[in-house]
């Protein structure tokens, strides 16, 4: 890498494109506006519905639904892979089972579900705004373009 190339690289290193900055700003504004709307109201339904529709539009425009949009199968490493997957399944299964057990039980004060715990935190507007922005960002990440090669 020559001096000029290195200089260009250093100038661009760590910098987001204008599109990325614009999308991030829009996501934050969306979170702030949507968080100001009370749940169980038509405006909140419209706000969350609009975010959902926006992500679906991005998915369709990026060709996310096409098989070619999927990256390669992650490579498997070593003999511990299978056992590690079992640990993942056990952990996720335990969380799911406990959530179901809590959901089936009453009262909610004694048997908190994940959403009941989250909703307490979401009572504060900044937390709710950040959560909604994070939710939309997650949706955009899910349907966003995948790298051609996985890192691992």
């Amino acid at each position: 890498m020559g001096r000029a190339d290195r200089s260009e690289f250093e100038r661009n290193a760590g910098r987001a494109s204008p599109t990325t900055v614009g999308v991030a700003a829009a996501v934050l504004v969306y979170g702030a506006v949507a968080a100001s709307l009370d749940p169980f109201t038509r405006p909140s339904e419209v706000a969350i519905g609009a975010g959902t529709v926006a992500v679906v539009i991005v998915a369709l425009r990026t060709g996310w639904q096409r098989p070619s949009a999927v990256g390669p199968v992650p490579p498997r490493h070593g003999e511990h892979w299978g056992r590690a997957v079992v640990v993942w399944v056990v952990l996720i299964g335990a969380i799911g089972l406990f959530q179901m057990a809590q959901f089936q039980s009453n009262p909610r004060d004694v048997y908190p579900t994940l959403s009941s715990l989250a909703s307490i935190a979401f009572g504060a507007w900044p937390v709710r705004a950040a959560a909604i922005a994070g939710w939309l960002a997650l949706g955009l990440y899910i349907v966003g373009p995948r790298p051609r090669e996985t890192a691992r």
Partner: peptide, 8 residues
Amino acid sequence: HLFVRTWA
């Protein structure tokens, strides 16, 4: 679920 149908 979290932002429309749940409210503490």
